[in-house]
């Protein structure tokens, strides 16, 4: 078990998401940075869909009530456990009573704490993710609070300290400036409802991520992007990544806790392989959109899968080497 000693903002239990209930209007939820959650679980020898804790704000502090392995992935982190410094993208071991303190996140927006065996909350509608909107899943369907004691599944893996190259390094994009995230998008249904000058404005602008951005969606600020004529549509199915243009011309990117339907015109959609980059973009920082063809979106997906495949192979290899040496 782990006990939350200090928490700020909506930290929550998340796995990869709830994917089978969309037709009933239940959104996916799930980790905003799914690559980081997978990497943590791979490091620990967990099922990659095991639930972890998504930490968006600091300070955060918790106590381990038994010996267990844990990993920190996602945002860069300054963390300490019983006086020991934990580097970013790292797995380590905690002893009973150890207190883990997250002191700073120098880059990125969300940190993932995974534990050996995973956070053992009940599956609800096929997932352990917290559904904020519906107030179910995760830990009692709500953000974590001080005093919460989360059950952890048993894990038999014996594990030493080990780090992983952060996905942001391995999957680095060219021409990325500090404090600006470039995400690849494919154009969406109502793109042609905007004239050429407005489309160009959408591509060339550096969009500021406003404080009204969270797991539901990111509200961006920049020049007004408005269609040639107002577009009135009935509510229709939308997915995380869809970029809508409401009447004020300020884009909204739908994220993991988005509704399953909406009526605003859609100008573009962030490709699946870059959604985690949006999830790690900080409030107040900037986003730029790069138009991508569908085939390139698939290639990006393959590149991400290759990173995870390599990670799985590397971890297995190092584990085997250690077992050989100690036997």
């Amino acid at each position: 078990m782990i006990e939350i000693l200090s928490v700020t903002g909506p930290a929550s239990v998340q796995d990869l998401g709830r994917f089978d209930q969309y037709r009933f209007g239940v959104g996916t939820s799930g980790a905003m940075d799914d690559v980081a959650l997978r990497a943590g679980n791979i490091l620990l020898g967990n099922d990659e869909n095991a639930a972890g804790i998504e930490i968006p704000m600091l300070p955060f502090k918790l106590r381990f009530d038994r010996n267990m392995a844990f990993a920190l992935t996602g945002a860069d982190v300054e963390a300490e456990i019983s006086g020991r410094v934990i580097p970013p993208w790292w797995r380590s071991r905690a002893r009973t009573g150890d207190v883990l303190t997250i002191k700073a996140m120098p880059r990125g927006a969300r940190l993932y704490l995974t534990v050996g065996g995973g956070i053992d909350v009940p599956m609800v509608l096929g997932s352990r993710s917290t559904q904020f909107r519906g107030e179910f899943g995760g830990w009692h369907g709500r953000p974590l609070q001080v005093g919460d004691i989360l059950p952890c599944a048993a894990s038999t893996a014996t594990i030493g300290e080990l780090g992983v190259e952060p996905a942001e390094i391995t999957l680095a994009r060219p021409n990325t400036a500090a404090d600006e995230t470039i995400v690849r998008v494919v154009i969406a249904g109502e793109y042609d409802g905007f004239d050429a000058a407005t489309q160009a404005l959408f591509w060339s602008s550096s969009w500021k991520i406003t404080p009204q951005s969270n797991r539901y969606g990111y509200r961006l600020q920049g020049p007004a992007v408005k269609p040639k004529a107002p577009i009135e549509k009935r509510s229709h199915g939308i997915v995380p990544g869809v970029i809508q243009i409401p009447p004020n011309g300020q884009p909204i990117i739908q994220m993991r806790d988005a509704q399953t339907s909406g009526g605003y015109p859609k100008i573009a959609t962030v490709i699946g392989a870059d959604l985690w980059r949006v999830g790690q973009a900080r409030l107040g920082s900037r986003l730029r959109f790069e138009q991508t063809a569908y085939t390139d979106a698939l290639a990006a997906e393959a590149e991400m899968s290759a990173y995870l495949d390599r990670l799985r192979t590397n971890v297995r290899l190092v584990e085997e080497t250690r077992i050989c040496r100690s036997s």
């Binding site: 300290e161 080990l162 780090g163 990173y307 390599r310």
Partner: peptide
């Protein structure tokens, strides 16, 4: 004793040197 003094990079992994 046990302080990490550096890393060995093996593929995508970082093994600590203590």
């Amino acid at each position: 004793a046990g302080t990490t003094v550096g890393l060995v990079k093996i593929g995508l992994l970082y093994a600590p040197i203590v």
